[in-house]
Write a protein that binds this DNA or RNA. Structure first.
Lengths: 336, 336
DNA sequence: CTGTTAGCGCATTCAG
DNA sequence: CTGAATGCGCTAACAG
């Protein structure tokens, strides 16, 4: 059995209060007593039981993180930021994956609440309003991170999607492109951020008197990219497009591959760029020009925001913090 | 403030013992009393405080997971298995990343110990013997998952590396290849598993009277692959190799890219295969033939093993569980 | 500066 | 079947 505060007190021949005082440095203790306590702690290899401590202080130093799927690269990048900054402030991460199941997320909220987490970070692909409501009820502060939806009712950290596509489109235009198509995800059209992304793209185009052209893909898989390719291969050959801006890196990559199989070269015959800036984008050939979302920073800022509220006991400000994106100019886009 | 067992007791007009009994279903309670308690729980939306419960039962239902870097794809795949199975048994995951720092890992062990975790899973790239020693001292059961080292002194789950390369090499031979090179990582030569992998490769070659040829790469980056390419590009042109078996997917991919830039086509001019079976391997073109390590299963089996020991309070068996690998035959290898 | 005491929320004896 | 009492390990008044 591990030693307790009592054992230390007995060995140092002081009361447990004194031991507690030296551990927490909460009140003055005579040098002599402190020395004895420290010695006893050393000898007994005593370490305070955090569970007992939590019970009385009502501080668990635990942050719950509910993610969609930890296996997702973007999720794990965000989580990195959360974990690293959390640790800086002595918070531990309680992790759980919901795989998009709303009910499961509700269950996690309860579990976390019982474990007395001091706050929750939600890294989700869906919009779980019931969960947010429940968390409000439970009075657990939370920050939402969501790539696909803009959330107004909660504390959030995100990028400015419209501005991001605007900048990338502009960068394409500066490179001499005039016929730029935007490949959107059809099923994402009800996810607010895709509409913002399209807006940014269109705005940049119109501002230069260029005609925007949105192409729809049914999904992100190879087969979906294949369909897109079939739809537009003739247009490409007819030079109706000189550049294609895909809503996500993975789609851009699949599309590059599909095009390649048709003998269409990137960037010689057509330029392609993506959105996300995941590891994939720098490994494929040609390396993918893309919009880099600052995943790590998003996580880092989110937990900072959360902890600030937790530590100050002030209400969490329910606003969106926007982080800047970076345009990564690589090999898949050529200058005209 | 959340309601406590006292509130429930008061409302149901019973003692807290009775409430406790119905919550835990630990002792018979009269139907009438049970009804009243249940009702009070419902009304007050009472949920037991797990911290208090842990303090008395000495069961935290917490498993600590120390990982090298959660941002690493293989780590997150393993973690998926750990998390999902852990949850099945009502265990929560306490996560922390050490980024390979031995001292930091030691600190985590202490932190986790103070939080009363019931077991620890170590997903590391290094071999931290001091940590294992400390965990033994702390009497915290643990399972080690390590892709690079074979560990004898601890409970582990792994693949049979020698057998894995043996099988892949054999598969290459069956496809008609006779001149097969193995690209190893020089800096991994002191990591036991690389030597096992080389052994498996050599054994398969020799068994067919073929001459093994190990090529060394200094690292896994693009530049390293470039160097390897430069070293062997003439040999490839001279048909000294028909296939190259790379010790990791990422190296295989970089090598394919480097070769491509020299006008050497995969698999037309040379076949390439990797090891790992990470997502990358199915996205590159040509898709990479590779040895798929069962990351999810490794995590799942590891936590099963751990929890079995925790729940039964029996000593954890310090052995290695070997999981089967799968040879993924894809487009980067052609039959001769 | 220090020890005594109460109590955090709960499970678990031990009497009834 | 039930309630009163005890204590898990610790912090925080409170009184000295």
């Amino acid at each position: 059995m591990a030693s307790t505060i009592k054992d230390v007190a007995k060995m140092a021949d002081v009361s447990i209060s004194t031991v507690s005082r030296v551990i927490n440095d909460s009140k003055p203790v005579s040098p002599e007593a402190r020395r004895r306590v420290l010695h006893a702690i050393e000898v007994l290899d005593y370490k305070p039981n955090e569970v007992a401590r939590s019970l009385v202080t009502k501080k668990s130093n635990l942050i719950g993180v509910i993610v969609n799927d930890i296996g997702n690269s973007y999720v794990s990048q965000v989580l990195r930021g959360v974990e690293e900054i959390g640790r800086m402030f002595n918070y531990d991460i309680l992790l759980s994956s919901s795989y998009g199941d709303l009910e499961v997320e509700m269950k996690f909220a309860n579990l976390f609440s019982q474990k007395q987490v001091e706050g929750i970070i939600l890294i989700s692909d869906i919009l779980n309003e019931r969960l947010m409501f429940k968390l409000d009820e439970l009075k657990i502060p939370y920050v939402v991170i969501n790539r696909f939806y803009t959330i107004d009712e909660a504390a959030t950290v995100s990028i400015n999607n419209k501005n991001a596509t605007y900048k990338m489109t502009q960068s394409l235009i500066e490179a001499g492109h005039k016929k730029i198509g935007y490949v959107a995800l059809r099923k994402d059209m009800d996810r607010t951020n895709e509409t913002y992304k399209i807006k940014g793209y269109k705005e940049a185009m119109r501002q230069c008197n260029l005609k925007p052209h949105v192409i729809y893909s049914e999904g992100l898989d190879r087969e979906d990219a294949l369909e897109v390719m079939e739809d537009i291969v003739d247009d490409i050959k007819d030079q109706k497009y000189t550049a294609l801006f895909c809503t996500q890196d993975i789609l851009a990559i699949h599309l590059m591959n599909a095009l390649f199989d048709q003998g269409i070269r990137v960037p010689e015959d057509i330029s392609i760029c993506g959105f996300g800036g995941t590891v994939l984008s720098e490994i494929v050939r040609p390396t993918l020009t893309t919009v880099k979302e600052p995943f790590y920073d998003i996580g880092a800022v989110a937990i900072r925001k959360l902890l600030k509220s937790v530590d100050s006991k002030e209400e969490l400000k329910r606003d969106t913090v926007f982080l800047p994106v970076e345009i990564l100019k690589r090999d898949s886009v050529k200058s005209l």
